[in-house]
């Protein structure tokens, strides 16, 4: 099964290698790994998605904590959370064939971020299934995908129902429904503007 860990680590050379090497040592495949600076100076936050037996979670977490540069680990699987991935997709398209891709992008709430005479680039953010969905549709409509770059899953635990937005939407029961999630996030973003 897929295990998702979020780890707060020291932002130092070699820390990524240590984390990756741990999974290699345990003979566990990393499905995706994203990393970037966190809110705390000198630290980064990683989301690690790995494929391992259902009982492996405890050992992976305990082993991550044995790395001196790892400050905090969360096994996200057991908690309700928000999950996002960003993908850039370059598709072959001429000015004549562009328009149906624009429509597709609209449906998937993706954006066109680059236009060239023979290609265009789509930016899409969402849960993995949404990105898979767009890729599938592009493939089925015989558009030639030239390049795909995906960040892998980023995950954050939900607040403990403290968000006013969540309360107002009365969505405590729908965390697992992807579309509902997306709505909330978008509304929340709008509120900030």
């Amino acid at each position: 099964m897929l295990h998702t860990f979020v780890a707060l680590v020291e932002d130092k050379p070699g820390v990524l290698t240590r984390v990756a090497s741990l999974f290699r040592r345990l003979n566990i495949n990393i499905v995706s790994l994203t990393v970037g600076r966190s809110e705390k100076q000198g630290t980064s936050r990683m989301t690690i998605v790995s494929e391992a037996s259902p009982t492996a979670g405890h050992r992976i977490m305990a082993s991550l904590y044995k790395l001196e540069n790892v400050l905090q680990v969360d096994d996200i699987g057991q908690y309700s959370s928000v999950s996002r991935e960003l993908a850039l997709i370059k598709v072959a398209a001429t000015p004549q064939t562009r328009s149906h891709i624009f429509e597709l992008a609209e449906v998937f709430r993706a954006r066109i971020v680059d236009l060239a005479p023979e290609s265009l680039m789509i930016e899409i953010t969402g849960v993995e299934s949404k990105i898979e969905g767009l890729l599938q549709v592009l493939n089925e409509s015989e558009d030639r995908i030239l390049e795909v770059s995906r960040t892998g899953r980023m995950v954050m635990r939900r607040g403990e129902h403290t968000s006013r937005v969540l309360d107002a939407m009365r969505v405590a029961g729908v965390e697992t429904k992807d579309e509902a999630e997306e709505e909330i996030v978008e509304i929340a973003a709008e509120e900030q503007v």
Binding site: T55, H58, R59, A62, Y65, K66
Partner: peptide, 8 residues
């Protein structure tokens, strides 16, 4: 003393 040894 090592939690990673439990149920290994």
């Amino acid at each position: 003393i090592d939690p990673a040894e439990i149920n290994k």
